[in-house]
Amino acid sequence: MMADTATRVSYGRALANLGGKYDFVVMDADLSGSTHTCMFAEKFPERFINCGIAEGNMISVAAGIATTGMPVFASSFAMFAAGRAFEQVRNSVGYPHLNVKICATHAGVTVGEDGGSHQCCEDIAIMRSIPGMTVVCPADDTEAYAAIEAILKYDGPVYCRLGRHPVPVVFDPESYKFELGKAVPVFEGNDCVVFATGVMVSKAIEAYDILKSEGINISVVNIHTIKPLDTETIIKYAAKTKHVVTAEEHSVIGGLGSAVCEVLSENLPTRLARVGIQDVFGRSGKAGELLEYYGLTGEGIAKKVRTLLGVSK
């Protein structure tokens, strides 16, 4: 059993390893120790640019570098990369469709003690609204590492959502294959499907075990790419189970839950419930406590499934 790992650490490791094989630039806004871009900076200082605390400038500088043909990874916390610098992401990177990878760490409430001002639960919503933007949210160490290599090889703007808090490693690095835009079925069951992303994938796996012991068999599908969305797989599982639950460490407004609703209401209207942050700001606390507080747990998902199926525990 591998130790729990934060996807920001996977990111730093991936950059440091890939830096020897590929030509790219990494940028940060004075958070390299937290985002783990420092791992790249130590090995390749000539290709690392610290922009200081000026995220908007960083994103537009990244765009300028990308026009010369070099891919750029630009990192900060999700709140600042997607929030503060939204307009630079939209106009400097998105509009000209430049090869900039915005890798934002400290997404969601698992930022922890820093509290609501730093817990970005809106980033998936705002990033997926930008035309041509790919939005990725890896579930664990294995997937995060593979995702970084995949987005490096992809030519175009990407927003990649990473976390601060260590999460269980659910995928085997030896056998796991990552494909941008392709959902990953984890468990098969006929009663309900849980579409989960990011840290909620391991929680959905917990929910699978909880519900199985109660005689309820769910499918669990990992949606690591929220845009472009694997609509085919979503429709397939909705058709099979007739009941859908989405799970994300993000607002229920505009994120994975909304994206799945959009697909299903247009193609296959299906009973659905969303696990996520229910239109409130975060608060200080330990990451684990916050996940409990907001119902972002295996039991939280199981409860939604039971309600949807009309069964009591």
């Binding site: 908007g56 994103i59 537009s60 765009a63 300028g64 026009t67 106009n91 400097s92």
Partner: peptide, 13 residues
């Protein structure tokens, strides 16, 4: 403001 930053990026590249 954004073009000025992008120009800096080109120069840095």
């Amino acid at each position: 403001g954004q073009g000025f930053s992008a120009a800096c990026g080109m120069a840095k590249a």
